[in-house]
Amino acid sequence: MNASTNFPIISLKGVNKTYRLGQVSVPALRNVSIDIHSGEFAAVIGASGSGKSTLLNIIGCIDTPDSGKVELAGVDVAKLNDNEKSDLRNQKISFIFQTFNLVPVLSVFENVELPLLINRKISRDERSARVRKAIADVGLEKYMGNRPDQLSGGQRQRAAIARALAGHPALVLADEPTANLDSENSHKIIDLMMELNSQRNVTFLFSTHDEKLMGRVGRIIHIKDGVINS
């Protein structure tokens, strides 16, 4: 773990988020304030419905808080328009999903390449090089041309990790990345993420309700009923 204490890469202050389900309002986050520093390998742990995913969604700018402030690398996210948020996600933040969310008609190579296609700052050759490196980093060189339906669950998640890393993000958000994996693969995935965190100083923040993974992270953030207990 290489946590930088100089400045938080993520800073939430007094963030609230409520979802309306029909007539019922569900408070997902209540007055949440938290800082995540660069290089941290942290896990958000809580029971189902505790607000873990909501916290990650707001940090990842794919959801908007009802109130409070969210800063990413010093930038107040609320002041960004949709396109700016999209660019931020593309260049600074990556996601790894519980259900992998690979595009079924694209190969491993094409899936990993996908987020890089809309980044005009990257040349074609560089893009290709990054993709190959990312695939090599997750050990899927032999499966570059395979489609997701030709891969195992673990391989799919590796491909998703490669996609997340190919863009050289500052922050990787993983929402229950091991939920659909067996315990062996779960550990392998966490090992991989830790390795990438230590080698590249990429900040990892993932949510899980698996208590067994708690001992392997640098920081645990407990959340219960939308409230964080550090």
Binding site: G60, D82, L88, T99, N101, V103, R163
Partner: peptide, 16 residues
Amino acid sequence: SEEIGTYRALGFRRRI
């Protein structure tokens, strides 16, 4: 819908 959400999470603008 989930696929669209994935594209958006990856940084794809609405237009794209």
